[in-house]
Amino acid sequence: MPQDSLTAAQADVKGAEVGGAADNPKAALHLKLAKDQIELAQKQIKDGDNEAAARTLDRAQADAELALSLAKEAKAQADAVDANEQVGKLRKEIAK
């Protein structure tokens, strides 16, 4: 059972990394928290504390998901600023 949660959490971490979580400071923090907690969960599983491991993996998964959301949000914000700048530039170009 904890093995499934472990795999799921690891997949979420992977997803967050692919989503660019390492490039954004806040997202990178949660990515690190997720990884640290996966490590802790693996230790807990090794120690036979499956119940604690399952909750640690829930935390890891939540952090990984948050890392991905933050990365996506940052990208969307940057894109919006960029798009606005493009409009401004085009307007200036036309006004010439």
Binding site: S69, Q77, D79, A80
Partner: peptide, 17 residues
């Protein structure tokens, strides 16, 4: 809660874009 906040902001930014 933070994920919800981030998703809301993302959606807002995407609409702006």
């Amino acid at each position: 809660a933070e994920i919800a906040a981030a998703e809301g902001s993302r959606e807002k930014a995407e609409r702006k874009r």
